[in-house]
Amino acid sequence: MSAFLHELWTDFVPTLLSAMVTNFEISFIALALGLAIGLPLALLRDRGGGVGVGVSATIIALMRAAPTFVVMFFLLNVLRDLSLFGVKLAMSGVMTVAVSLVPYSAAYVADAGVEALRQLRRGSPLGALLFLPNVTRAFFVIVMSSGAAAAIGVPEGISMILREAALLPTLGQRLVVFAIGIVLFGVPLQLGLALMRWLQRELGRRTMAA
């Protein structure tokens, strides 16, 4: 057992950590695109007039309802056969997963953005700043969701865990690998959530003081 654990520590854990970089890469791209799409939608939802509000509300509702996993397979199977102005729309595996997470991140950013704009209108800039911890929360949700990339063969953290587990003969050994995966994914998540709670507390304290 100790030889098994030693091998995991020296071989598997470094491999997993380097693969998890892909999860963060996917999440950064998804959040950046989500901000680029979600913020204009939030502005339109808040200040767009009758038609603008209707259009943005519909788009946000559709994006909120689109399941990430299905969007990923849709992009993978539909876009690769299409081209726009002669340019092939096919994307790399990482981009496919990142773009599939955009409906979620854009809808989340739009919702949080609308709330922030309302807080600003009410004269509470600190309340509006709660937008930041909310976006942080979205980022970590996206990191956890990016494991879906394993389904299309992107070599990220979950793929590595599953590949390692598939080679192990006993359920006990596989559970050890799964546990390492949970710890390595969980630590950044819990740290991120703690940071978000601290930010919320801090902003709340300052709001009360103001």
Partner: peptide, 16 residues
């Protein structure tokens, strides 16, 4: 533990 586990991993563990 459940919050720290990506949903894909939770599914795989449940299936295992």
């Amino acid at each position: 533990t459940l919050q720290s586990s990506p949903i894909v991993l939770t599914l795989v563990i449940a299936a295992a």
